[in-house]
Amino acid sequence: MTQTLTPQDTLVTVTPAVSIIESKDAYLVSLDIPGAAKDRIAVNVEQQSLHVTAEVPAAGEEAGKQYRRQFTLADDIDPHSADARYELGVLTVTLRKKEQYRPKQIHIQ
């Protein structure tokens, strides 16, 4: 079934492209969300999941976009450690590894 809507009423759901980089103590999860205002981006981290949503309003004939993507967190991630920044239309969430999963160098005595 289709509905007749003005562009302003329509939100197109978009799955943002992602890149994930693993370093020795963290994962960097970057998502392309061009044109969003910072206060229209929501990042939710729970025990087992990372959920990102963002809204870009309609412009002229262009329908508004709703960006949405969810990830299941691996066991080595500390969900309380997450932080996020938004730069040049890219949201980057840093998820640090739990202490016990970080590599350690052992000194030989």
Binding site: D32, P34, E62, K65, L88, G89, V90
Partner: peptide, 20 residues
């Protein structure tokens, strides 16, 4: 994403360039 918008006195072009 690329869009064009025309009004009586101008043309507005928007292009998504994340990470650039």
């Amino acid at each position: 994403g690329f869009s064009l918008r025309e009004s009586n006195d101008q043309l507005t072009v928007t292009l998504e360039l994340p990470g650039v």
